[in-house]
Write a protein that binds this DNA or RNA. Sequence first.
DNA 1: GACCTTATTGCAAACGGTTTGCATTTGCAG
DNA 2: CTGCAAATGCAAACCGTTTGCAATAAGGTC
Lengths: 140, 140
Amino acid sequence: MTAPNRKPDYETLLRQAGLRITRPRQVILQILTETDDHPDAAQIFQRAVKQDAQISLATVYRTMKALEENGAIQRHAFGDGPARFEHAGDAHHDHLIDVDTGDVIEFASDRIEALQDEIAERLGYEIVHHRLELYGRKKR
Amino acid sequence: MTAPNRKPDYETLLRQAGLRITRPRQVILQILTETDDHPDAAQIFQRAVKQDAQISLATVYRTMKALEENGAIQRHAFGDGPARFEHAGDAHHDHLIDVDTGDVIEFASDRIEALQDEIAERLGYEIVHHRLELYGRKKR
DNA sequence: GACCTTATTGCAAACGGTTTGCATTTGCAG
DNA sequence: CTGCAAATGCAAACCGTTTGCAATAAGGTC
Ligand SMILES: [Mn+2]
Ligand SMILES: [Mn+2]
Ligand SMILES: [Zn+2]
Ligand SMILES: [Zn+2]
C-alpha cells in the first residue's frame, strides 16, 4: 500500500542529472515505476532479468545508488535484512512491518513527527532524518 | 549517557541459563558492566584484548549472541554501520544520533510510545518491538 | 548516418561485518 | 580428580554490497 502514485518521470530526472538512459536502466526504472511494495536489490534483479537476461546485479546496485543520490528513491534497512527501496516523492511516512509475513504497511502521524521535533529541540539538535519502524503481529 | 546503572549481575544470569562462566566471558561481561556507551563488537574486542590478549573476535560475537538471547543486552543497528550493544534492564528509551560526531543520546517519550500503540491498534496490529532513531545535527 | 568521447556495463574479485566447522581447551557436575 | 559437554581460537565461509577492469554503447557533433 503506497501513497497515491506520483508516476515520477525517472528518465527526465536522470537526463537532467547528466546520466544516460541505457537499456538496463530503462528496465529497472520501469520495474520501480510499476511496483507498489518495497523490494530489495535481489528482487529488482530477478524482475529485471525477465525483461533482459543479461542485466547484472551490480548494475541494479549502481542504478539504485544513482537514483538515491538524485533523490528519486529512498533506501530503507528494515530489521537486519538487505536494503529495500521505494520511490521517493510520495509524502513522508513510516513503516509497520509484520513480523510473521514480512509485509510492510505504511502510516503517517504528524503528532509523532511533531513530538520528534520537540525532543530534538529540547536536546539542542536539528533533525536531519529519522527512522521509525514498528514491528508487529496481526491481532486475531 | 545511560540511564541509572542497574549493575546487572550477568554472571548469575548466565549461570541460570546453563551457560559457563569462562575467562573470556568474565572479561567481556566486565567491559559491558562498566561501559556507558553503545560499543560495537570491534570496540568490545579491542577493550577485551587489553585484559586477555588471546580473546578472539568470534568469542565476542558468540558471547553477545548468548547475552542477547537471554535478554541481558540489546543489539542496535544505527545507520548502516556494525551492530552496537548496550545492557538491557534499563528502562526503554530511543536514540538520537549526532550525524557529525556519531554520539548517541538517549531519550524517552511516553507520548510517542502511546501514539505508536494507537497506530498499531488502528491497523489491527500488536507491537512486538520498534525502532525510533533520530539523526540530527547540533544547533549552534 | 558515421565518428568520437565518455559513461555505463558485465564479470569476477574484493569488501566488511558476522557466522561457522573443527580440533583443542576448559568449566564444572559427580 | 575424572569425564564429558560446552566453549574457545583459528581460519574459512558467509551474505549483501561495492569496485577494478576491459569491453560496450549512449548520445553529442559533424
Ligand atoms: Mn514506504
Ligand atoms: Mn541506549
Ligand atoms: Zn516519520
Ligand atoms: Zn521507543
